[in-house]
Computed example of a mutant assay.
Amino acid sequence: MTVAAWAVPLLVVGQFALLAVLPVVLALVGALRSVRDRAVRRAVFLLAAAYAAPLVVWLVRPDGAQSLSKDMHPGFAGLIVAASAALLATLHRARKQRCPGR
């Protein structure tokens, strides 16, 4: 899940926003299947919602650009990067609590 959380902002900033759906879905499924920490689940849902908003806007608009990266407002890209950073911080905190000797 950590690799997926790192991949999302890299793909969005690197102008491969549509491909970022894969790590978002992987993080969401991983959190639902194996993570019991509520904070991690909330952070994953925040990331999924932040990514889904521009994706839905791009799919629904009839006059949208040819790619999600070109159609996405920079504010959405910043929100996705911030949500991914929040997920990474939450994962780090959860790992520290689970393994205090690390």
Rank of each mutant, 00 (worst) to 15 (best):
A4K: 02
A5G: 04
A5F: 00
W6Y: 14
W6F: 14
V8N: 01
P9W: 10
P9D: 05
V12F: 08
V12C: 09
V12S: 03
G14E: 07
Q15G: 03
Q15N: 09
F16R: 11
A17H: 05
L18G: 04
L19K: 13
V21T: 09
V21P: 01
V21I: 14
V21K: 08
V21A: 06
L22P: 13
L22Y: 15
V24M: 01
V25N: 12
V25Q: 14
L26K: 07
L26V: 11
L26Y: 11
A27C: 03
A27K: 00
A27H: 00
L28H: 06
L28V: 03
A31M: 02
L32M: 14
L32H: 13
R33S: 02
R36S: 09
D37T: 14
D37P: 01
V40K: 00
R41G: 00
R42F: 06
R42T: 04
A43T: 00
A43L: 01
V44I: 09
F45H: 09
F45Y: 13
F45P: 00
A48H: 07
A49S: 13
A49Y: 04
A50L: 12
Y51K: 03
Y51C: 01
A52G: 15
A53S: 12
P54H: 07
P54K: 06
P54S: 05
L55P: 01
L55T: 12
V56W: 12
V56G: 03
V56Q: 08
V57Y: 10
V57T: 11
W58A: 05
V60A: 09
R61F: 04
R61V: 01
P62S: 11
D63A: 13
G64F: 08
A65W: 13
Q66R: 15
Q66D: 14
S67W: 13
S67K: 12
L68N: 03
S69F: 06
K70N: 15
K70P: 09
D71W: 10
D71C: 08
M72Y: 05
M72N: 05
H73M: 05
H73L: 06
P74I: 10
P74C: 07
G75A: 08
F76N: 01
F76A: 02
A77T: 04
A77P: 03
G78I: 05
G78T: 14
L79T: 07
V81N: 00
A82R: 08
A86G: 11
L87G: 03
L87V: 05
A89R: 15
A89E: 13
T90I: 03
T90S: 10
L91F: 02
A94W: 00
R95N: 12
K96H: 13
K96S: 12
R98T: 05
G101H: 15
G101E: 10
R102F: 08
